[in-house]
């Protein structure tokens, strides 16, 4: 890791640790969950070149499974989160196996179709509470002794989970496996001709991205103490695409910045009433027209250039 990057990451780490002292912890936790979700998505679109339009299914499924495990089955928090992640990974495996056989728009459509199927399943299943949502998920103890009911404690737990997720993404991107993914993104035919089993790599990236999205979803359900259909709706799949594009596709910090911008807009424009959608829309249009590479991508390009 270059020295400058180390300084940057250290600064961000300190910032993350100090943030809840000034800002509202629940808001920060929401931002962190979405940052992880967008980064997991970026692993697929930014580093493998696969545009999934159904990532909400991983976020939401993990949230529902984790919430149900805690609330109804009474599982310990850590196992419930793992169950959510496992469920998302499994769904990712099934959907991925079928979707990676096609490319481009067809790939996106297959993922969208599956995510819509899951949406309707969650709408109908009795345990999800339909449009009322799965409500009142208790925050108990993590590992039996960390009391999650306190917002500040919960924040540091979420921060740790997000960091673990980021670390995993960082390691993946900088591993030989990550190099192969980038090769596939740049030129799939060439990667294939070099003897790489492209489909296996793509599937693995897909499952990894699904599992990390699941981690974000399970954590988010715990933060808000409920899980609703919003998280499996196709709007959410679109939102994560926007976050990634806005922040900078294929950059490490881009999705985080994008998620932060989108979540901040949603949260702080809420008091502007009917103008929320108009203003967010205008900002998106402006960003896409003015910063093609996304906020972080644009800054990185300036520094290099």
């Amino acid at each position: 890791m270059p020295r400058s990057h180390r300084i940057l990451y250290a600064a961000l780490l300190i910032l993350g640790l100090l943030a809840p002292l000034v800002a509202y912890p629940i808001f920060l936790m929401k931002a962190l969950c979405f940052a992880l979700f967008a980064s997991a998505f970026n692993l697929l679109i930014g580093f493998t070149g696969l545009l999934s339009f159904g990532h909400a299914m991983f976020l939401g499924s993990a949230g529902y499974i984790c919430g149900h495990a805690i609330k109804v089955l009474g599982w310990p928090t850590e196992f419930a989160i793992l169950a959510g992640v496992a469920a998302s990974a499994l769904i990712g495996y099934v959907v991925g196996t079928l979707a990676i056989r096609r490319q481009g728009i067809y790939f996106a459509m297959i993922t969208l179709a599956f995510s819509q199927m899951l949406y309707f399943i969650f709408l109908q299943m009795p345990f999800t509470g339909g449009e009322d949502g799965l409500q009142g998920i208790p925050r108990r103890h993590l590992f039996g002794f960390i009391d999650l009911d306190d917002d500040l404690t919960m924040y540091y737990v979420v921060f740790a989970i997000t960091l673990a997720g980021f670390w995993m993404i960082y390691r993946t991107i900088h591993s030989p496996f990550g190099q192969v993914l980038k090769a596939i993104r740049e030129n799939e035919a060439r990667a294939l001709s070099l003897g790489y089993d492209v489909d296996r790599y793509k599937l693995l990236a897909f499952v990894l991205s699904a599992a990390l999205s699941g981690l974000a979803g399970a954590t988010k359900a715990l933060v808000f103490k409920f899980e609703t259909l919003t998280d499996v709706h196709w709007h959410m799949s679109g939102e994560v695409v926007l976050m990634t594009l806005l922040g900078g596709m294929g950059t490490i910090l881009g999705p985080t910045v994008g998620a932060l911008i989108v979540v901040t807009l949603q949260n702080y424009l809420a008091s502007l009433e009917g103008w929320v959608t108009v203003i967010t829309g205008a900002i998106f249009v402006l960003c896409v027209l003015a910063f093609r590479r996304g906020v972080v991508g644009e800054i990185a390009a300036r520094i290099k250039g």
Partner: peptide
């Protein structure tokens, strides 16, 4: 590099 760190922290501090 310092500048980039500053910009990034500015974003993180906005909310």
């Amino acid at each position: 590099q310092l500048l980039s760190a500053l910009v990034a922290s500015a974003f993180a501090l906005a909310p």
